[in-house]
Structure formats: C-alpha cells, structure tokens
Simulated assay, not measured.
Amino acid sequence: MDHASSDPLRHHGDVDARPGLLDFAVNVQGSGPPPWLRDRLVAALDGIARYPAAAHDAQAREAVAARHGRRADEVLVLAGSAEGFALLPALRPRLAAVVHPGFTEPEAALRSAGVPVVRVQTREADGHRLVPAEVPAEADLVVVGNPTNPTGVLHPAADVRALAAPGRVLLVDEAFADAVPGEPETLAGAADVPGLLVFRSLTKTWALAGLRAGYALGDPALLARLAAPRPPWPVSTPALEAVIACSAPSAVAQAQDAADRLAVARAAQAERLGALPGVTVLPGQAPYLLLRLPDGCGERVRGALRDAKIAVRRGDTFPGLSPDHIRVAVRPADQVTRLAAALADAIRMTNGTVVG
C-alpha cells in the first residue's frame, strides 16, 4: 500500500518498484527462496489447517537461540521486523530518539501512538558516523540500524553499546547484518548489554518478503513487555518453519557465502556507478548503495529512470536526505550495466548538456 501521500515515513521501496520495472528499489536478494527452503515451506502447508502450535514456536526460539548463543527465553519470533516496530509503543517510552537517516517505520509507529520522538541526525560530511553523545540523555528508547538503511554505514559495536544507559531500551535494527561478511559489529549475542533489543529479519537474504518472518533478541522481561499487545497466533506456521530452517548451521553458512559474493558485487557496482559523471557513491557495507546525484537533478532522474523501466528507491522520505539521494540495491552485473547506461542518460538529459 502506498502511504507516501499521507506520511512520507511510511513510504517504502515496494511503492517505487511497480510491476514491469527492473527493481533496484527493494533490497530483497533474488526472486525467491532457494529450492531447499521452498521445499520446507511447501511441506509446512500440510499443517496450516491447524493453529500455529506453541511447540513449533518453542522450536523456532530454540533454533534462533542456538544460532546466536542465547537462551530460548531471550528470543521472540516476529511476523517480520515490521511487527516488532509496531509493538514499540507497548514499551511506553516517554521520549524516543531515532537515529537518522534510517529506516522510518520505527518512528512512524511511535508517532502514530503519540510517543514523542527526537531525531538524531548523522551527517554525510562525517560519513554518517554515529555520535553517541548526541543522543539526548533523557531518551528512554533509542533506535538505530546497523548497518543503517539507507546509508549502508556499519557502526562500530562499541559506539552502539555506548548508547545503552540505565532505564533505557536500546533497539538495534540488524535487518541487514547477515548480508555483511562475518556479521561484524553485531550485538545479536550480547546478552550483557542492559536494555538491549536486537531485531533480525529473514526477508532480505532469503527472499521471503511476502512471508513476514523475523525475530527479536533481548531480556525475557523486556520481550514480554514488547509482546503484551500481540493477538493470539501472531506468527504463521510457514513463518515459524522458515525461522527454524534459516537458523540451522548449514543455512547460516549458506547466508555467509552469499554475503561474501554480495560484497564483491557491491564493490564492482559501486565502482561502476561511481565512475558516472556527477554520481557520488557514499561509503557503506550493505546490500545497497546510497547515491548522491547532481544538485537539483534527483526527481527528474528518477522520472527518467521510470521511463526506462527501472525502479530506484527515492531518498527524500528518509529524514536528513534530499531529493538528490537515491538508494539502489546490489544486483547482477548485467542489470547494473542497464542501470548505469540509463542513469548516465538521465543525468545528461536533466542537465540539458552532455556531461564528461
């Protein structure tokens, strides 16, 4: 659903990726899950005549706990990270601080519930580096992505840990952490950080956006507060099966192999697009690139790319970015060639002259 007309915070990449367009707007990798995972999900359909079972949920929590070196009661299985963000008002924060540019759904959910929100803006001139001291001391909920969407910046774990404080909940959105080789700077296994919540998603690496599967990690009492408003059976049987399957050691190894390949493709795509006149590729480590286009060209370039049947993620709905920022997913080389050619043409047309 396109919420952008009423609330820019609720504009997401799927709105930009209309059918028939080459999709650089959504960060899902591939067109569907691998065959072995698809087979697991198809087999799970035999059980959908029954309500999701508590034993199945327990099995999913145990699988996630083993994957991250946590206890099963430190895991809450979610219908995607988006469900977790929707539950944040249940924590009853007095003041939430959200680090931007970042994924906008946490702020949208909090504001919709009447929670006061302050934005902590990172700066492009500083590489969008997180500065913990800039978070207001009175904030009792802090939200940060790592790596951050859309900048792709991977903050040092020590800087993220520095955001923890007595009486504060620190939420780290690690939706793309498994797409970075070795998962550096993750806090998924950090049971020693008081008030820490970590959200993980299976959507991106495993091409499961339509299934809605993810999980939260944290202290059991904190997870219980978060889950208090949930309806019965919030996570479907196929989603529980996906969490179990994708947490297995063999799946984790496969995800890391994919992350290694993705890092190589990302570097090549960054070099290719960064060579275009007027295009700046901002530094990052994620399965997407944040680009800055020539001043004043962004909206017209996006329109020209749409005319060329290519979808990119607009940047101006992310607080702190401008219409001249776009985010593009990492894609195979042949698709990057098509994007690079269309982007070069679009910039030439919008500038009104041949550049370079």
Rank of each mutant, 00 (worst) to 15 (best):
6 S>Q: 13
7 D>W: 13
11 H>S: 13
21 L>K: 01
23 D>K: 11
25 A>D: 11
26 V>T: 15
27 N>T: 15
33 P>A: 12
34 P>S: 10
42 V>G: 03
44 A>W: 08
48 I>T: 15
53 A>V: 05
54 A>S: 08
60 A>Q: 01
61 R>E: 05
65 A>N: 06
69 G>P: 07
72 A>G: 10
73 D>T: 10
73 D>L: 11
77 V>Q: 07
78 L>C: 10
83 E>M: 15
83 E>L: 15
85 F>P: 10
90 A>E: 02
95 L>F: 07
96 A>S: 04
98 V>G: 01
100 H>G: 05
104 T>S: 03
105 E>H: 13
114 G>L: 07
121 Q>E: 15
122 T>E: 02
126 D>M: 08
129 R>H: 09
133 A>C: 07
137 A>F: 14
142 V>Q: 01
143 V>P: 12
144 V>N: 03
145 G>F: 13
146 N>Y: 08
151 T>F: 07
155 H>T: 13
161 R>P: 10
162 A>S: 10
169 V>P: 00
173 D>P: 00
174 E>L: 02
181 P>C: 00
185 E>S: 04
185 E>V: 06
192 D>I: 12
209 A>Q: 13
211 L>V: 12
211 L>K: 08
216 A>Q: 08
219 D>G: 11
221 A>N: 08
221 A>E: 15
223 L>N: 11
227 A>W: 11
229 P>Y: 09
229 P>E: 09
230 R>I: 13
234 P>I: 10
235 V>H: 02
256 Q>I: 03
257 D>N: 13
259 A>Q: 05
267 A>S: 14
274 G>Q: 09
283 P>C: 12
287 P>F: 12
287 P>H: 01
289 L>F: 14
290 L>G: 02
291 L>Y: 06
295 D>G: 07
296 G>L: 01
298 G>F: 01
309 K>I: 02
309 K>P: 00
310 I>Q: 00
311 A>N: 02
316 D>H: 14
318 F>W: 09
324 D>F: 00
327 R>G: 14
334 D>Q: 14
335 Q>D: 14
339 L>E: 04
341 A>W: 04
345 D>N: 06
347 I>D: 00
352 G>N: 02
356 G>Q: 02
356 G>L: 00
